[in-house]
Design a protein around this nucleic acid. Structure first.
Length: 278
DNA sequence: CGATCTACCTGATGGC
DNA sequence: TGCCATCAGGTAGATC
């Protein structure tokens, strides 16, 4: 579900709403969400800590704690982080609840249970969460030049969509935004990375930056299933600005004649305009 | 080494 | 109405 723009939207809200708060108690239900360390250890390491900051790398949220630890959260397909009052009814599939001393809760709700939470520390992160070290550049947090981007692109031989979604090269782009970026760049998903002219490379680079920033501006994308909502349960608005994603058989917003085509690429739905993307 | 498939889950949707 | 197949924002691990 959530990609960089959705996770960034949540990060900004967490910064406003939970930074400075102290955890009074942590509750864990089930065995799926906290699976990397004993539940008891997770709860103990959160007990009484103050949240001092919120960072993001790709689709990972990193909550800095005054103990020196960090709470790592990945929402995967269906995870939601929700602010609530203690008296609010507990939604189905609520797996983790942090209650703050000042009142209020942060809840982790996740029907498909692919999402994950764990507590680690910067010095043991490499062992506890090796995948974090594998993440590539976050194009919003660490802006890069188009020359650097060109080097990343030409360093691997694959299809453009696979390149964009490879978290070890660029961190944060998933199925929705890769399609939107490729449309903005006027490039097909199945072009080889080594087939681009330098003008096309620059177009792709600009499309990455602009599409992600535009999506953040609109609070991310919420599809028909309402799966993605922000910290306050509000949907995003970027889906109204999608040019291709989830717009199968609707007229292309650029050429206005051709209908958006849906294909399968590496088992995932891929939307594109056969006229505007070459 | 890299590219490609499968498993992990629940729930919504559409065809019959 | 129900039943069954298919699909969904992601990624680790297996397999080629």
């Amino acid at each position: 579900m959530p990609e960089l723009p959705e996770v960034e939207t949540i990060r900004r809200e967490l910064e406003r709403e939970v930074v400075g708060k102290r955890v009074k108690s942590a509750e864990v239900h089930g065995t799926r969400t906290v699976r990397r360390q004993p539940k008891k250890q997770f709860i103990t390491r959160l007990d009484g800590v103050k949240i001092t900051g919120v960072d993001r790398k790709g689709k990972y949220l990193l909550l800095r704690l005054d103990s020196g630890d960090e709470l790592v959260i990945h929402l995967r397909m269906s995870g939601q982080l929700l602010r609530a009052a203690a008296k609010d009814p507990m939604p189905k599939h609520t797996h983790v609840v942090l209650t703050f001393t000042q009142g209020g809760q942060l809840r982790f709700v996740d029907p498909r249970t692919f999402g994950e939470m764990f507590v680690t520390s910067p010095d043991t992160e490499d062992v506890d969460a090796p995948e974090l070290a594998e993440l590539g550049i976050d194009p919003v947090e660490e802006p890069i030049s188009w020359q650097t981007f060109a080097r990343l692109l030409t360093a691997r031989k694959t299809k453009l969509k696979a390149f964009l979604m490879d978290q070890t090269v660029l961190a944060g782009i998933g199925n929705i935004y890769s399609d939107e970026i490729l449309f903005a760049a006027g490039l097909r998903y199945d072009r080889d990375t080594d087939s681009l002219s330098s003008q096309e490379i620059r177009r792709l680079y600009r499309a990455v930056i602009e599409t992600l920033h535009e999506a953040i501006k609109y609070g991310g994308s919420t599809l028909a299933d309402d799966q993605y909502v922000d910290l306050n349960g509000k949907p995003g608005e970027f889906q109204e600005h999608h040019k291709v994603y989830d717009r199968e058989k609707q007229p292309c917003r650029r050429c206005r004649r051709n209908l958006v085509h849906k294909a399968k690429f590496q088992q995932r739905s891929t939307f594109f305009c056969e006229v505007c993307q070459v």
